[in-house]
Amino acid sequence: MDEEHRVLESVVGEFASKELEPINKQIELEGIPKELKKRLSSQGFLGALAPYDLGGASLDRLGYSILLKQLASASPSVAFYVFLENSFVIKSILLKNEVREKIGLISGGEISGTFYYSHLLNFLEPGEIKKIDSKLTGKLNAVINSEANLFIVPADDGKFYLVESGFHPLDEHEKLGFRGLRFSPVKFDTSIKDAIEIPLNVDELIDDTHLPISAIAIGIAQGALNKAIEYAKERSAFLHKLKDFQPLAFGMAQAYSQLDILNEYLINIAQGERDIKKELMLKIISIDFARDVSKLALQVHGGYGYLMDFGIEKYYRDAMFLSILGGNHLDEKMKLSTLIFQEKAGWI
């Protein structure tokens, strides 16, 4: 990794420990505070993928991965928020010249957006928006960041629209993870003249998320494992530190090794030529890894791990939620199988 990226890693790492760690509980209970959004913006994180001329940081793939990983290691909710704003909202808006100025507002933290893709995640009743006469009307379920000011949503004509008025979020769903973001159905009744069609290629957009989602997963694993290692050095049972017991030490050492390898792989493919197969491989493995490691980290903390105050259980919930929001695992395994066999595979 070059100097520039190393600096970025340490700057974001410091931001995460100074600005996120102390208010983690608040983020989980009350959502991401406005002031924090401002701070994320002033650091250039909210406009990570936006071009310079629109007030963005124009990070490359490695820089963006580092950013998400470091944020996720302290607050997976904040990392997911930054990811949603960048990988979905900003990237979609960039496709439509007339609305490019909205990017400044998003990267400036003045407004937030969301992109609806739950219907792609093997979801039975996603709800639907119908385009009837001069209106877009209907309800969408399971909208993440549903308190957004700006929505990019699919309608029944197969197109995606950007809307900024004529919607309201309904009561929240049960919230497995990423509790810093609102998660609820949203009702739409928007005049078509206020809706702007976005010329999206959804498959491409989703393919571009493999790497950032891997980065969040690796960040979750890193955050959880670091806490477990620290705890195992402090906590005693049976007159010994937890780290002294083989099953615990070996489990954490193994996880540390796997994490290091995944991290290297992430850096490698983020710097190299685009390779969808490798990105998909990394995502599928790192999502499962994040879940297993955060579960191990919780277990190492014993009863304390089960309490929110210790800031450990959220990693396990968030990792589980990421394995749902990160993609439809069946579709993706089929896709990976086909890439590996170089012909249709894994479809029965």
């Binding site: 093997n122 979801f123 009743e125 049960e174 394995s323 749902i324």
Partner: peptide, 18 residues
């Protein structure tokens, strides 16, 4: 949860998990 996806995540399955 993994195989039922969002379908499970917005039901009591998420509570069973916790």
């Amino acid at each position: 949860l993994k195989v039922t996806g969002l379908d499970g995540a917005i039901t009591s399955l998420e509570r069973l998990f916790r």
